[in-house]
Design a protein around this nucleic acid. Structure first.
Lengths: 243, 243
DNA sequence: CGGACTATTGATTTGCGTCAAAGATTGTGG
DNA sequence: CCACAATCTTTGACGCAAATCAATAGTCCG
């Protein structure tokens, strides 16, 4: 169990600092959390459904998806977590699982015991507040995804998703016009509640309209303004508000 | 500004106690929160989009919906809140609005200033934890709704919704076979991402199958077991986990 | 070099939306 | 208490976006 300051934990602190104020002492307390580093293959499920977790996991590298299944076995991805996210911070407070977690690409995660997370939250009210706020940001994304899946057509859903990931990979400052987003068209379908066939057709539309190109797990934005319009994207829901 | 113990606040404490442990002192602290009671007509928007809130609102009576719009003006309801819920507890920690709030029927709400909520959370760590957990329960429902809208057909979406509301109106203990759920078919469509016409047809199907009848804002469950199966309902996501 | 994904495209089907119109219910003011 | 408006429910006919089915290429990797 490593306890030295770690670059992975630093990126989580960076994430928290984007929306919350933390003193040097509080930052240091997070950075010295004891963790266990796990290296996972692609498409490896962990944080099993129905099982009570005893750890939070923290994404040092890779792309993590939370998912559920309907009884026909169709998968629906309900959340994506990138470098610097803590996909199941909530499990420290509410251990009951809410869907499984899986890697979409090879990933490294840091496991931190619930007890350690709770100890921090208990000892440092500002950290508790930052954790709480972090969970609320995740919830805001969930709300946005309901809008996306419920009230937008295929083209708009994909446009919106690319906008969101562009903004998130940019780390809360503007957006990226060219970024790796290592998912298959099947997985894009699992995210947007479409079939891979229709994802393929809609991607072609977006490409031909010269809004965005998705190829080999990479997104290349041709016209950010048009893409934002097509996806009805407003980045407000991604930004914190407590600093 | 009333400060005496109030029956409305009591039902919120009851809700918290369903998932979190609070001492007598902590309960009393919540019950003496200063509030302002507002009586609202049906279909009255409040907690305006884009505006930073300064209060949390607490549902004493009625049915409150959180919603967003797409650019065609179609409304999507992303959350429902009943008697005892606090629809925007999160706004104390993250004031940025995430969609508007509206009443679906005449309602009475209690407004509590953010400062008061934060003071409680700061002074009583157990209350902060309970508030945090309460937000996580709301988030679990959001995740479930993504599944519902994304991966289930019209009949299953409605069945699932009726199951959820049956369980929630039962206050975390079993379910109700007969309960008021005062929404129109149009609003059922806004919740399930369907048109009111298709809601109507699907309700007929459910009625003819003798699973559930929806009439005049009342749900009458004919076969709970069948309804649960049709809606792929598992109440686990509604229950707290921290007691 | 062969097996397993992944992407692409065409043909066809279908669940749900759209449009339209007729009842039923509720509310309101005279 | 009735008349009339407004809203809500129900049903039919038709259209369309996305699903399904199916087949051919790429592409990656051992």
């Amino acid at each position: 169990m490593a306890t030295s300051i770690n670059a992975g934990l630093q990126s989580f602190v960076d994430r928290l600092l984007r929306h919350s104020r933390l003193s040097e002492v509080e930052q240091a307390a997070i950075l010295t959390l004891p963790f266990r580093k796990l290296t996972l293959r692609a498409n490896q499920d962990f944080g099993r459904i129905g099982e009570r977790a005893k750890h939070c996991c923290f994404v040092e590298d890779g792309l993590i998806a939370r998912f559920g299944h309907n009884c026909d076995g169709e998968r629906q991805i309900t959340a994506l977590h990138i470098h610097g996210d803590m996909p199941d911070l909530h499990s420290a407070i509410r251990p009951a699982g809410i869907g499984g977690l899986t890697t979409l690409v090879p990933a490294t995660i840091l496991q931190v015991a619930h007890a350690e997370v709770l100890r921090l939250a208990f000892n440092y009210p500002a950290i508790a507040e930052a954790f709480w706020r972090d969970c609320l940001l995740d919830a805001a994304v969930l709300m946005d995804w309901i809008m996306n899946v419920g009230r937008r057509n295929a083209r708009a859903r994909l446009a919106h998703l690319f906008c969101e990931m562009s903004a998130r990979y940019a780390g809360g400052q503007g957006h990226l016009d060219n970024f790796r987003f290592p998912v298959t068209q099947q997985q894009l379908g699992d995210i947007t509640a479409l079939t891979s066939v229709h994802v393929n057709r809609s991607l072609r539309t977006l490409r031909e309209e010269e809004l965005v190109t998705f190829q080999n797990g990479r997104v290349i934005v041709s016209s950010w303004a048009e893409l934002v319009r097509a996806g009805e994207f407003d980045a407000a829901y991604l930004t914190g508000d407590g600093v």
